[in-house]
Amino acid sequence: MSFCEQIKKRFIRLSRGQRKVAQFTIDNPNVIATHIASDVGKLIGVSESTVIRFCYAMELSGFSELQEKIRADLMGQEEKVEQSHPLISKRNVNLLNEVMNRDVASILNTINIINEEQFDRAIKLLHESECLYVLGLRQSSPSANFLTCTLSNYRRKVKQIQPLVENIVQQINSMEENALLFVIALEHKADDVLTITKMAKNRKAKVVVITHSCISSIRDNADVLLTVGSQKSALAETITAAHSLIHALVEGMVAQNKKQYTNFQKVNEQLGSNSLYTEKSLYI
């Protein structure tokens, strides 16, 4: 029996305030796993002491043990996640509404679980980094390409690491000290990405990670870890949430020095227009 199921069994015996904590825990396990007790209390609208009393009512030693129980639940859910899209096997006359509403739900869940301090730190690292490397393997590769192209509109020295093994090793080994490695790892298995982040940390690079899980093994090598989607989201919905988060991060970076970034964007667009004009003239 999962811990959330245990909460449901004891729900009726809890006080009114404790029931609020219980329901929030069931609905938002990622938040419980990644936030401190006082922050959880603020999100629910109860005191920190109510959160702690809920832990005691569940026969736990405190909030840390609650987090351990919830993380164990989340790990168990990850193992059961089906890779197939849930809509493939059934006809749905409201397919457009169904798919887009689930994308919206994935984005809304991301808003709830993102730690604002981590988000702000990611923006600061994007703004202050001299050289920025972007990594995304397999199904995360299109998201890495989206981030690379978006950042390249506003700043210099943005490089997307190519997926070939020899290229990865060479690029990581040539990485400047204090460079920033931005990793997008949305798949459930990411052992190779874990190895690459370790190599980057050995080069004294900063590492920002967007991942599908707050308990990802990559978190130990990350200076900033941002979680998107939910445990029940299909990969396509998680990717949608990741792109929305990327958009917010880039907007935040630009806001650090709007004049600098908009000037670079204008020059970049002008160079692109001149290049296109030159290419066309070759065929006249």
Rank of each mutant, 00 (worst) to 15 (best):
D223Q: 08
D191P: 05
V207L: 11
A122I: 03
L245S: 14
N115Q: 12
L135V: 03
I111P: 00
L147G: 12
N115W: 02
F119I: 04
E130G: 07
V165A: 15
S143C: 13
V224T: 08
A248L: 09
K159D: 02
T211E: 02
L181Y: 00
E187T: 09
N153H: 14
I210E: 13
C214Q: 03
L194Y: 11
D223S: 07
N173I: 03
N153E: 12
V134I: 14
S244N: 08
T197N: 06
H247G: 14
K204A: 11
I111T: 03
R121Y: 14
I210F: 12
T240I: 13
Q171N: 08
L194A: 06
S216E: 09
P142V: 05
N145Y: 07
E166C: 06
Q160R: 05
R203D: 09
A241G: 05
A234I: 12
I239E: 14
F146S: 14
T211F: 02
H243C: 05
A242W: 14
V158Y: 00
L125R: 07
I111R: 14
L125P: 06
D220A: 15
I196P: 02
A200Y: 12
C149Q: 13
K206D: 13
D120L: 15
A122Y: 00
L137C: 07
I196Q: 07
T227N: 01
I246Y: 08
Q118D: 15
G136K: 06
D192C: 01
I239C: 08
R121P: 11
K157D: 11
N178I: 03
S141F: 11
H127M: 01
I114S: 02
T197V: 03
G229I: 06
L126G: 03
C149R: 15
N221C: 09
I111W: 05
N202P: 01
I111A: 09
E116F: 02
S143M: 09
S213W: 09
R219H: 13
S244A: 12
S152A: 12
R138D: 03
R156S: 14
T148N: 11
N112M: 10
I168C: 00
N202G: 14
E177V: 09
R203N: 13
E176I: 01
A241W: 05
C214I: 10
F119N: 07
L126F: 11
E128H: 05
E117N: 06
V209Q: 06
I123R: 11
G136R: 03
N178K: 14
I210L: 15
A185Q: 11
K198S: 09
V193H: 04
R156I: 02
L226M: 05
I172M: 13
P163S: 05
V193D: 00
I184Y: 00
V208I: 15
S213E: 13
K198Y: 10
N173D: 00
Q118M: 07
L164G: 01
K189M: 00
A248C: 07
I246T: 06
L245Q: 01
T195Q: 09
Q118L: 13
N115R: 01
V165W: 10
E176K: 14
F182E: 08
L225R: 03
V169S: 04
V183H: 04
Q139M: 01
P163G: 13
